[in-house]
Computed example of a mutant assay.
Amino acid sequence: MSTMTHDGTFDATPTGVAAAARARLSAGLAFAVVSALSFGMAGALARGLLDTGWSAGSITLVRVGLAAAVLTPFGLAALRGRWHLLRRNLGLLTAYGAIAVAGAQFCYFSAVQHMQVGPAILIEFTAPAVIVVYLWLRHGQRPGRMTLAGAALAALGLVLVLDLVSGADLSVTGVLWALGAMVGCATYFIISADEDNGLPPLVLAWGGLTAGALVLGVLGVVGLLPLHASTAATTYADTEVPWWAPLVAVGLVSAALAYVAGIAAGRRLGSRLASFVALLEVVSSVAWAWLLLHELPGAAQLVGGLLILAGVVAVKLGENSVTAPTPAEPALEPAA
């Protein structure tokens, strides 16, 4: 790696390489923070719209559709005419759009209709611990001690977030929707980590958003997905805003900008460090809910949230200690 100097030449000295690495790291961290802050805004914005009569399906359709439209030129540029990649991965993109994009967002918005934003996003972000179990059962990738300890911490944190110990009145419907969002989130991580499909990250994001918007649109047309809207003003932080303002924000900021910034962060930081910084989305969601909706989880739920975050960090740190299944010895042919 080399850096450009003021006269147009490249500085390949150790100092220049280190400076370029620092600049790349700084830019990557900035993109990751922007992505996390943008993604975290979605729950609070959706809750305001839900309170005025919008359905979760309508909000999800607008969010996914706007993001897909904005990312179309970037996705086409990244595709560079390689249409065979779309044809070859049509099933994957459909599943990604239906489950990881549309399904996860619809379930999350449905969850915040019945419970606070903070607990809903915390339940969704137990997905990395669930992926550990999935890879163990499905592919025989036995996790190491740190990974198992992280999964146990996340499970304990989930108990506190759900407030099961005190027996508090909890919306079962909201929890089930949040668990559905967790399944969608886990699917997102699993498919996004698959590098064998040949799809550039930006094409995967654009294709998934487009497929998700089409799936939601079809379900709405045939009447399987309730689509309700309202032009009533929405209130955030005791301030009324026109109905279209949160829709623009949820589509362009918390989806399109968030996806692009997240991809830019992943390219500069690598998937491991980027996934760590992405945990700021949980903190961001709680902060936005507090600022815009005056919602704040209870003390036990906040402690549970910290345990979930610690558990996910431990799971990520333990990724390198995963033991791959040992291939079976080939059977010996009997002697003639």
Results as ranks from 00 to 15, higher is better:
residue 4 M to V: 12
residue 5 T to D: 01
residue 5 T to G: 02
residue 10 F to E: 10
residue 10 F to R: 12
residue 11 D to A: 02
residue 12 A to W: 13
residue 12 A to K: 07
residue 14 P to R: 04
residue 15 T to V: 09
residue 18 A to V: 05
residue 19 A to Q: 06
residue 21 A to M: 11
residue 23 A to W: 05
residue 24 R to A: 09
residue 32 A to I: 02
residue 32 A to T: 03
residue 43 G to L: 13
residue 43 G to R: 14
residue 44 A to S: 14
residue 44 A to D: 06
residue 47 R to N: 00
residue 47 R to Q: 09
residue 47 R to D: 05
residue 49 L to G: 14
residue 54 W to G: 02
residue 58 S to G: 02
residue 60 T to N: 09
residue 62 V to I: 15
residue 64 V to P: 07
residue 64 V to I: 15
residue 65 G to H: 02
residue 66 L to E: 08
residue 69 A to S: 10
residue 69 A to W: 04
residue 70 V to E: 00
residue 71 L to K: 02
residue 71 L to N: 14
residue 74 F to N: 11
residue 75 G to Q: 04
residue 76 L to F: 14
residue 77 A to M: 12
residue 78 A to H: 07
residue 82 R to D: 00
residue 84 H to M: 12
residue 86 L to R: 01
residue 87 R to Y: 05
residue 88 R to Q: 13
residue 96 Y to R: 11
residue 99 I to C: 05
residue 102 A to N: 09
residue 103 G to V: 04
residue 114 H to L: 06
residue 115 M to Q: 10
residue 117 V to Y: 09
residue 123 I to G: 03
residue 125 F to C: 01
residue 126 T to C: 10
residue 126 T to Y: 01
residue 131 I to E: 04
residue 138 R to L: 07
residue 138 R to V: 05
residue 151 A to I: 10
residue 151 A to Q: 11
residue 154 A to S: 15
residue 158 L to I: 00
residue 163 D to S: 10
residue 167 G to C: 10
residue 172 V to T: 15
residue 179 L to K: 15
residue 180 G to A: 07
residue 183 V to C: 12
residue 186 A to D: 14
residue 188 Y to H: 13
residue 192 S to Y: 04
residue 193 A to W: 10
residue 197 N to Q: 05
residue 200 P to I: 07
residue 201 P to H: 06
residue 202 L to C: 05
residue 209 L to Y: 11
residue 209 L to F: 09
residue 211 A to G: 14
residue 214 L to S: 08
residue 214 L to C: 11
residue 217 G to A: 11
residue 221 V to E: 08
residue 222 V to N: 10
residue 223 G to V: 04
residue 231 T to L: 02
residue 232 A to P: 00
residue 234 T to Y: 05
residue 234 T to A: 15
residue 236 Y to P: 02
residue 240 E to T: 14
residue 243 W to T: 09
residue 253 V to D: 04
residue 255 A to I: 07
residue 256 A to W: 08
residue 257 L to R: 01
residue 261 A to I: 03
residue 262 G to D: 12
residue 262 G to P: 15
residue 262 G to C: 13
residue 263 I to V: 11
residue 264 A to R: 15
residue 264 A to L: 14
residue 266 G to D: 04
residue 274 A to F: 09
residue 282 V to N: 12
residue 284 S to I: 14
residue 285 S to K: 08
residue 287 A to E: 02
residue 289 A to D: 07
residue 289 A to F: 06
residue 298 G to W: 02
residue 300 A to C: 00
residue 303 V to H: 06
residue 304 G to Q: 12
residue 305 G to I: 06
residue 314 A to P: 10
residue 319 E to V: 08
residue 320 N to I: 07
residue 323 T to E: 05
residue 325 P to V: 00
residue 326 T to D: 13
residue 326 T to Y: 09
residue 330 P to I: 08
residue 332 L to V: 13
